[in-house]
Amino acid sequence: MSQEEAVGELEQSVGYVLKQAQAALHSAMDAVLRPLELSVAQYACLELLGRHPGMSNSELARGAFVTRQSMNLVLRGLQDRGLLTRPARAPHGRALPTELTSAGQKKLRAASVAVRSVERQMFAPLSAEEQRRLRNDLVVCVAAIPSVKPE
């Protein structure tokens, strides 16, 4: 294997640093969501439904980067806690459109504020322009790799 084919030193690998950033963000989000009795996946589900009411299990799973089976467990748990509603039967097709209850909307507001505080802390060393550039650069990088969907 040539030097060009190998990853090289991990500290110099953009992918490795991205994974470190993702792990740090996930850990910090978990810490602020735990007192609200939410996991990161549950928060992602609430956030998605807050922005797009009526999403199906499959759409939510894709948006939260989890499998459909995992999302089904997330949805069941949130429904059991009264944070969302799903009809017993699909109005058309097989998808059960899901919506937040008023309790779910209240929980989402608290969780969103907590997560935003983590983002502010993480990106505080960067100017607004640097944050914009980082986001735009990451969007370009994501677009360069074919989408892989969890099953």
Rank of each mutant, 00 (worst) to 15 (best):
G82H: 10
Q131W: 08
L18C: 07
V115W: 01
S56Q: 04
Q131T: 08
E129W: 10
V66N: 00
S27Y: 05
R89F: 12
R62K: 11
V139K: 15
G93A: 11
Q121H: 04
P53W: 00
E5N: 12
P35F: 01
V40S: 06
I145W: 14
C141T: 14
K19V: 04
A103G: 08
Y16Q: 12
A88H: 09
A64T: 01
R109F: 14
L48S: 05
E129D: 13
L10N: 00
R51W: 13
G50C: 00
P53R: 00
Q3P: 04
E130D: 10
M29Q: 09
R76Y: 07
V140I: 13
G15H: 08
P150H: 03
L33E: 06
V14T: 11
L10S: 03
V14M: 14
L18V: 03
L49W: 10
E99A: 10
R94C: 05
R89I: 06
V118L: 06
T67A: 08
L46V: 09
D30P: 06
R68L: 05
R135W: 14
L100P: 01
A44S: 07
T85N: 09
G50P: 10
V40F: 01
R68M: 02
S70P: 02
A64S: 11
N57R: 13
L49C: 00
G50N: 02
T67K: 03
K107N: 04
C45I: 01
E5K: 14
R116W: 05
L138Y: 14
V7S: 05
L46W: 10
Q3L: 15
Y16P: 08
C45G: 06
A110I: 11
A23T: 13
L49M: 04
P53D: 09
Q69P: 03
E4I: 11
V148H: 12
Y16T: 09
A6M: 12
L48C: 10
A144E: 15
E11Q: 12
V113M: 11
V14G: 09
A128M: 07
L78P: 10
Q131P: 03
S56V: 06
A21M: 11
C45N: 07
L25S: 12
L84K: 01
G77E: 09
V17F: 05
K149N: 07
A95Y: 00
G8F: 05
A41Q: 03
L78G: 09
K107L: 09
E99I: 02
R81M: 09
S102V: 15
E130C: 07
R133C: 07
C141F: 15
L126Q: 12
F65P: 01
R132Y: 00
A111Y: 06
V74S: 03
S13Y: 12
Q121P: 01
S70E: 15
S117L: 12
A41G: 00
T98L: 03
Q20Y: 02
M55G: 01
L10W: 10
H26F: 13
G50R: 01
